[in-house]
């Protein structure tokens, strides 16, 4: 990051499917960090659960030789995001750091972006979010609580990115790998989620993204995501988990 001072970072994440155990720690961490409404039984049954990152579970093979495959799916922050051009009010746009961001105030809830997202990672607040009294103080003051009627999705923990950038600036140095860690990556016990700056030639994400196992989710649709997946190392596997 020494020579590329002027260049803004390009945030990216690598998801190592080989390391994922499907423990859902990332889901819980994200929930707590980003003031995501509680997903009660009822909400789940309505299929309206909001999980900015979710673990998709696929079964492979026939009983008894059946295997569970886990695939963490979050907003892919596509460079060529299908959700962006369809929003009539510019509530979703692409920022200069390679991220697809959502402006809650502008959103009117047409849900067109959700339709046009091939990864199904955009969520609509069907109900006004409520937290029990005991959890009121748990809400993160850095993150807006979204009211009903608007879309939300993974922000790559933009509040942490901002905080990290500010801290680094105060300390008078350049961003280094590890200055910014989103909640999910922080919580992941197996280190399956790695976050960093793709423009930083020395960053972990950059190195991991060059792994020969790398692929992008639904690559054929031409969305050019900023989230890179690493294939599961499994001699018996026939296909990447994303291509069920």
């Amino acid at each position: 990051m020494t020579t590329q001072h002027a260049q803004s970072p390009k945030w990216s994440m690598v998801v190592d499917a080989d390391r994922c155990t499907g423990c859902q720690a990332c889901v819980v961490a994200c929930q707590a960090e980003n003031n995501v409404p509680l997903n009660t039984d009822d909400i789940f049954k309505q299929k309206r659960a909001i999980e900015w990152i979710r673990i998709e579970r696929y079964w492979e093979g026939e009983y008894p030789n059946i295997k569970a495959r886990f695939l963490p799916v979050l907003c892919q922050h596509c460079e060529n995001a299908p959700c962006e051009p369809v929003c009539p009010v510019y509530a979703t746009y692409h920022n200069d750091q390679g991220m697809n961001v959502q402006i809650y105030n502008r959103c009117i809830g047409t849900r067109y972006c959700a339709n046009n997202c091939p990864y199904n990672v955009r969520f609509f607040n069907f109900w006004e979010p409520v937290w029990p009294e005991s959890l009121r103080n748990q809400l993160n003051p850095d993150v807006t609580v979204r009211s009903r009627g608007i879309m939300e999705k993974c922000s790559f923990c933009i509040q942490r990115i901002r905080a990290g950038t500010r801290r680094v600036k105060k300390e008078g140095r350049a961003l280094a790998d590890g200055d910014v860690v989103p909640a999910c990556a922080q919580a992941c016990p197996t280190d399956a989620l790695v976050f960093g700056n793709m423009h930083d030639a020395g960053s972990r994400v950059r190195k991991m993204s060059e792994d020969k196992r790398h692929y992008r989710l639904l690559e054929r649709s031409g969305t050019d995501p900023n989230v890179i997946y690493l294939k599961r190392v499994d001699p018996t596997a026939t296909e990447g988990a994303g291509h069920e």
Binding site: K47, N115, F126, R148
Partner: peptide, 15 residues
């Protein structure tokens, strides 16, 4: 008044 929760819509059937 209640929000779109009163409809049958959900993810991914948003319309």
């Amino acid at each position: 008044n209640q929000g779109l929760g009163v409809t049958g819509l959900h993810r991914p059937v948003m319309w």
